[in-house]
Computed example of a mutant assay.
Amino acid sequence: MAMINIKKPAEVSTATTVTLGLIGGWVTAKETGIRPLGGVILAAAGLWAGRSWLDKAGAPTTAALSAGYLAAFGASHPLAKKIGAWPAVLTVTAATAGAAYAFSDAK
């Protein structure tokens, strides 16, 4: 039986991970019609990124980036009513991934 190798937290690109969570969660919910399934993707990516943020940047940065990730999810909904779904999701994803890169991945 093969061993499963899980990346060490310091090796994870959290900018990529939050991008997967926000865009992947939205696409999953939209295409399946099962919103909670999109939420599972969103939550899994958030937990995976959080594990790395804690290792790379410490608890205060993890708390701030986690709050930003959740805020991005929440902000995408009213923003979508103003500019459309795809532009809203891409906008909040860019901001969140940029923050993840700047405050964690670039370290």
Rank of each mutant, 00 (worst) to 15 (best):
V40P: 04
V12I: 15
P60G: 05
A57D: 11
A59D: 01
A75P: 02
L65M: 06
A49Q: 15
L54R: 15
W48S: 07
A85Q: 15
S76E: 15
F73P: 00
T14F: 15
W48V: 05
G50H: 10
A57H: 09
A15P: 02
P60A: 11
A57T: 10
A71C: 08
L37C: 00
A45M: 12
G74L: 12
A10N: 04
V40T: 08
G58C: 14
A44K: 04
L37D: 00
V92R: 12
L37S: 00
I34K: 13
G74E: 07
T62S: 14
T28D: 00
G25F: 03
I83D: 08
W53T: 02
A71R: 11
D55E: 14
L42E: 03
G74H: 01
T19C: 03
A85N: 13
V92E: 15
T61P: 01
G38A: 02
W48Y: 14
L79C: 07
S66A: 15
T16I: 11
T16C: 02
V27S: 10
A75V: 09
T16S: 09
L20H: 02
V27F: 09
G98H: 06
G50L: 06
A80G: 04
A63C: 02
A64K: 14
G39D: 04
P87T: 10
W48E: 03
G33R: 13
A67D: 04
A29Y: 07
V18S: 05
F73C: 04
W53E: 11
G98T: 09
T91G: 02
G50W: 08
G21M: 00
I83R: 03
V12A: 00
G84D: 10
A15G: 14
G33K: 07
V92W: 13
A59W: 11
L90I: 10
A57V: 11
G84W: 07
W53P: 06
S76H: 11
T96F: 03
L20C: 05
I23R: 09
V27Y: 14
A102S: 13
G46L: 08
G25C: 07
T28M: 02
A80C: 01
A45P: 00
L37I: 01
V18T: 14
G58I: 08
Y69K: 03
W26C: 09
A64Q: 06
T32H: 00
V89P: 09
I83E: 10
A80S: 15
K81V: 01
A10E: 14
R35K: 13
L65K: 06
L47V: 13
T14D: 13
L42M: 13
V92N: 12
W53C: 07
S52E: 06
A99G: 13
A44W: 13
A99C: 14
G33S: 11
A75N: 03
I41S: 01
G50V: 09
T93C: 05
L42T: 11
P60F: 03
A67L: 15
V12F: 01
E31L: 12
I41W: 00
G24H: 13
F103A: 11
S66P: 02
P60E: 06
I23G: 11
V18E: 06
S76R: 14
T96E: 09
H77L: 10
L90P: 04
A29W: 12
A57K: 07
P87V: 09
H77V: 11
T14R: 08
L20K: 01
W53I: 02
P87G: 12
L54M: 14
